[in-house]
Design a protein around this nucleic acid. Sequence first.
DNA 1: TTGACATGTATCCGTAACGGATATACTATC
DNA 2: GATAGTATATCCGTTACGGATACATGTCAA
Lengths: 115, 115
Amino acid sequence: MATKGTEHAPLTPAVLHILLVLSTGERHGYGIMKQVEVDSQGKTKMGPGTLYGSIGRMMEAGLIRESDRRVDSQMDDERRVYYEITAVGQAALEAELRRYRRVVAVAEGRIAYGG
Amino acid sequence: MATKGTEHAPLTPAVLHILLVLSTGERHGYGIMKQVEVDSQGKTKMGPGTLYGSIGRMMEAGLIRESDRRVDSQMDDERRVYYEITAVGQAALEAELRRYRRVVAVAEGRIAYGG
DNA sequence: TTGACATGTATCCGTAACGGATATACTATC
DNA sequence: GATAGTATATCCGTTACGGATACATGTCAA
């Protein structure tokens, strides 16, 4: 489904969720995984395969990058690798959210929807 | 990304668009293709590979079925194959729309979004 | 003290989906 | 008679998904 306007759209649910988490600040992989569960009210679970696979592709695409910053060196785990969203990632996130809204708007003009 | 609650979620954009079109009544393949373009304001184009591939998978999953009805036998093209949404498809559509809304709601609590 | 569980990163690999290219055929229009 | 639109359909290379698996550390309870 070729989508015009943005070169990254449409994003996969996994990529969108990761961008959504990182829009609040840098996080490490495992933290992203847990936050996705919170964001989806426990309805969606991202396994390590999807997580690190997506992260790799997103870094290659320039949507995210590794971050130097450590939130708290005292409370920090040495193993952690932090990621942050890039300007490209922000743009892709906003474009995808516009697409989501458009879809919901179209649906609302059509079906009775108790949501 | 395992999603709990519905066995078909999350739907791919192609499948969601097809269900959205069929929620207004039966359509033939080519008509679906054209309506997706309208629904997305020309931003998304579905090629025949995605269309018929998705239709096949959706019929197998019981989301849609072939329809006997012809809207107008006078204006009809013999080649056309009409499809209609099933109860299972309706449920999957509504579940996916709830997911879409949830994502948008989460995003609204986070980033400035002009859309 | 050992067994289970959470944290943390990472790869492997079978399966599913995407999607452009291609094929075929009819109709209309220039 | 050539181009474009309508209409269905398959092929197949590439991408993405996602459970299984691996491995190391820390914690907490039986």
